[in-house]
Design a protein around this nucleic acid. Structure first.
Length: 459
DNA sequence: ATGTCC
């Protein structure tokens, strides 16, 4: 190993890590050349391809490497949270109608977008400029853009490095949810822990209705990851893999392939930001149709949108020296404090950090602690983290039973595929409250608010 | 995660 492993967990959460191969994966990542500080893992860590899900690893940007497996297949898988200004009481009679409308407008599962098919040159613009394209074309507001990581527009994106196959897969997937753990959920703010910060984030108070979107760059990002993992493993260079696991292939950032991957990965990330923003627009339409003039559409706002599968170029202080690093976060969320951000909307407390739970349990809005820069390169968890493999979940849960149980708790469920529901049953995941306590006690991030689900749609 | 197979 070229660096130690550093796992953030509580006594009870560490027991899950002993049960799967994620500890071995933390060790594999630690073998990568030039790894800075440590191969890190968040409390929701679990087994993934190559890197563990919940892993963080950084390398020098100029001299070091980039590893597509350290980002994963769903590039810019991430979360957006939308505030409505409405209370639980305002929507109680229309909860089902609202979710039905959204379900009608936002394709999930294998379904594609019917009304939004882009030409090749339009897709190139999406990949190049992300949310800037969405704002210019009426698919997002200026405020949506301001409240998105990097304004939803990664400048180093290079659409020419995205294969035609990836582009064709993405062509009719903007504004879609997908399947697996992706979802759209109507929630209510259940508890506010930090009233000052929650106000700064744009929350009105306990009981406010909010909407959470969890999706990424769909087939487009998946194809980008597949393309580059294949290119690197077929390059014949025996020095780009030390572990035998091709999902841990790496290349020098400044090599031709390294620069191409970064340009393609950032393009896919821009696509992911636009994907979530278009879903926000569809939510606005659904509110307008459901509440007519009773609701102020301008009040439907993006609280924040951010990625938890991405590699970013960031400046960090390492051994007292400022260095430009490429920080891989796979199933880990950026959580920068106000001190680090210095300017912009959230420079007072830090940017909002959105942490989804599984369906049926709570989700959190958090804020990064300044101590986390030295501890985790400004990172925190990305969710509850799986406890059972997809296969084990399918064997253990029955989708009809899951739906009945959710409805008993007052949670309305719309789904495309029954098997996804069994795969994603709440019992497949760790206890989100436990993960949040571990993150808080490790000084990575503090809870600002806790949300509970009212209605959920899945692929 | 994923047109769950090149």
């Amino acid at each position: 190993m070229n660096a130690p492993g550093r796992i953030f967990a509580s006594d009870s959460l560490i027991s899950y890590i002993r049960e799967d191969k994620s500890l071995e994966q933390v060790m594999n990542v630690a073998k990568l050349p030039g790894i800075i500080q440590a191969s890190m893992a968040m409390p929701d860590i679990h087994w993934g391809y190559g890197f563990p899900i919940g892993g963080v690893a950084a390398f020098d940007y100029e001299e070091g490497i980039v590893c597509p497996g350290g980002v994963g297949y769903d590039i810019n898988c991430g979360v957006s949270l939308v505030t409505t200004g409405l209370t639980l009481n305002d929507i109680k009679d229309k909860k089902k109608l609202l979710l039905d409308r959204i379900f009608q407008k936002v394709p999930a599962g294998m379904n594609k977008s019917k009304d939004l098919k882009l030409t090749k040159s339009e897709i190139n613009e999406v990949l190049q400029s992300g949310l800037k394209w969405a704002v210019e074309n009426g698919y997002a507001t200026e405020a949506d853009m301001r409240n998105t990581e990097e304004n939803g527009s990664l400048a180093m994106a290079d659409p020419e490095k995205v294969s035609p196959e990836a582009i064709s897969r993405g062509a009719s997937q903007l504004g879609t949810i997908g399947s697996g753990n992706h979802f759209l959920e109507i929630q209510a703010v259940d508890r506010i822990f930090e009233p000052e910060i929650s106000k700064n984030f744009g929350l009105t108070g306990e009981g406010e209705v909010v909407i959470m979107i969890h999706t990424g760059s769909r087939g487009l990002g998946h194809q980008v990851a597949t393309d580059y993992i294949k290119t690197i493993s077929n390059s014949g260079d025996l020095n780009n893999n030390l572990t035998g696991d091709r999902q841990l292939n790496f290349v020098k950032t400044k090599s031709k392939t390294g620069e191409s991957y970064i340009g393609a990965m950032f393009s896919a990330a821009n696509f992911g930001f636009v994907n979530r923003a278009i879903i926000v627009q569809k939510i606005r339409e659904a509110f307008r149709e459901t509440f007519s003039t009773d609701v102020d559409i301008d009040r439907i706002r993006t609280l924040y949108s951010l990625a938890h599968n991405i590699a970013k170029i960031e400046e960090h202080t390492i051994d007292g020296k400022k260095r430009k690093l490429i920080v891989h976060r796979k199933g880990a969320t950026r959580a920068f404090s106000g001190e680090y951000l210095q300017s912009g909307n959230f420079s007072k407390y830090g940017h909002p950090v959105i942490i989804p739970g599984d369906m049926g349990t709570a989700s959190y809005i958090m804020v990064g602690r300044k101590e986390n820069m030295a501890l985790s390169l400004g990172s925190t968890c990305h969710g509850a983290g799986r406890k059972l493999s997809r296969k084990k979940s399918m064997e253990s849960f029955n989708s009809k039973q899951v739906k009945t149980d959710l409805e008993k708790s007052g949670i309305y469920l719309r789904m495309v595929s029954e098997s996804t529901i069994a795969e994603e049953a709440p019992g497949s995941y760790k206890d989100i409250d436990e993960v949040i306590i571990a993150v808080r006690d490790a000084n990575l991030a503090s809870p600002v608010a806790r949300n509970i689900p009212l209605a959920v749609m899945k692929g």
